[in-house]
């Protein structure tokens, strides 16, 4: 059985311009201990997917228009707020992009770590402190016992993100969702944080969803990948297959348009055009206006995400097995 099953999930937002669907018909499963990468650009719906799973979107303006999220056999999308609160932290935890704004500036990091522990487990104050020190040490904060009394502003960006990871993992969740966890960090620190996440997966045996716009971060971490574009999954594959045989023209474009250290290109293969405005998305395939392989049929209907080769699926009528 899968740890997480997302089926036909559609999340809509009320706006002044009417209701807009941020994600549409998103379906995927995630096995225990697996790392799933979700890659996409702005407006792709990758963060809304995560926030819907976590039940963190306020209603209104957001509402789940259809579909469900099943975690470890429980349908989360029908849970009361109180029961969902119990799952957040001990079942599923989340790390956000901006560690400065995710930490409370007026509490020490020790207080924030122990607050999370208290919310989910009965521990003596001494045991809380010990567990907090243990977690900070594990995520690579030197002399953790001394740092418990530090406020967030006293830490560097990389250390703050380590603290966020320690808080997220304090109650040993079975799934960690990391939304652009390294985007705000410097390159050398980004590499350290990604390595840390991989080590923690091995040690705690949790599953991870890593959300990013960076194909390099995906290449570095994921076992499986979902590629999202304008609110829909356009390709799903195991990591090797995605990089070796990308099926969707958008995925191919994403892989080709970035320069690489390993290979010199005289000119980058740019994807023409811009990302569609969520309020006025094109008819049919949403990538069609930018796609070099576009034919008339592409604009007639939204292509379904279909298995092309085994587990490798693409939402493209031009995609064929290689």
């Amino acid at each position: 059985m899968s740890l997480l099953e997302v089926a036909g999930l559609t999340t809509a937002f009320k706006t002044r311009r009417g209701e807009i669907t941020a994600i549409e018909d998103v379906s995927f499963t995630l096995a225990e201990r697996q790392i799933l990468g979700i890659v996409g650009e702005s407006g792709s719906g990758k963060s809304v997917t995560a926030l819907t799973i976590m039940g963190l979107l306020p209603n209104p303006p957001a509402r789940i228009a259809s579909g469900e999220v099943r975690f470890d056999g429980t349908v989360l999308t029908r849970l009361s707020d109180a029961r969902m609160q119990k799952i957040r932290g001990s079942g599923i935890a989340m790390v956000f992009q901006e560690p400065m704004t995710s930490l409370n500036p007026v509490f020490t990091i020790g207080e924030q770590l122990m607050e999370t522990l208290r919310a989910h487990e009965r521990l003596s104050p001494k045991a809380q402190r010990e567990r907090a020190i243990e977690m900070l040490t594990r995520v690579g904060i030197p002399s953790a016992a001394l740092r418990l009394g530090d406020y967030p502003h006293q830490l560097s960006g990389g250390q703050r993100q380590r603290v966020m990871i320690a808080i997220a993992l304090a109650c040993r969740p079975r799934l960690l969702i990391a939304d652009e966890p390294t985007t705000a960090l410097d390159v050398t620190v980004q590499a350290q944080i990604l390595d840390l996440l991989l080590d923690l997966r091995d040690e705690f045996g949790m599953a991870i969803i890593i959300i990013t716009h960076n194909m390099g971060v995906i290449a570095q971490t994921a076992d499986r990948v979902l590629v999202m574009y304008a609110g829909r999954i356009v390709e799903e594959a195991r990591i090797g297959a995605l990089f070796d045989r990308p099926l969707h023209p958008y995925t191919r474009g994403l892989l080709e348009c970035v320069p690489s250290l390993e290979q010199d290109k005289a000119r980058l293969a740019a994807i023409p055009g811009t990302l569609p405005d969520p309020a006025s998305r094109p008819r049919g395939c949403r990538y069609a206006p930018r796609c070099a392989l576009r034919i008339e049929a592409c604009t007639a209907a939204i292509p379904a995400l279909l298995g092309i080769q085994g587990e490798h699926a693409a939402a493209c009528i031009r995609a064929t097995p290689s």
């Binding site: 390159v187 960076n214 194909m215 390099g216 971060v217 290449a219 570095q220 990089f243």
Partner: peptide, 8 residues
Amino acid sequence: AVPVAHPG
């Protein structure tokens, strides 16, 4: 520290 271009 640059992320790899290929998972291999």
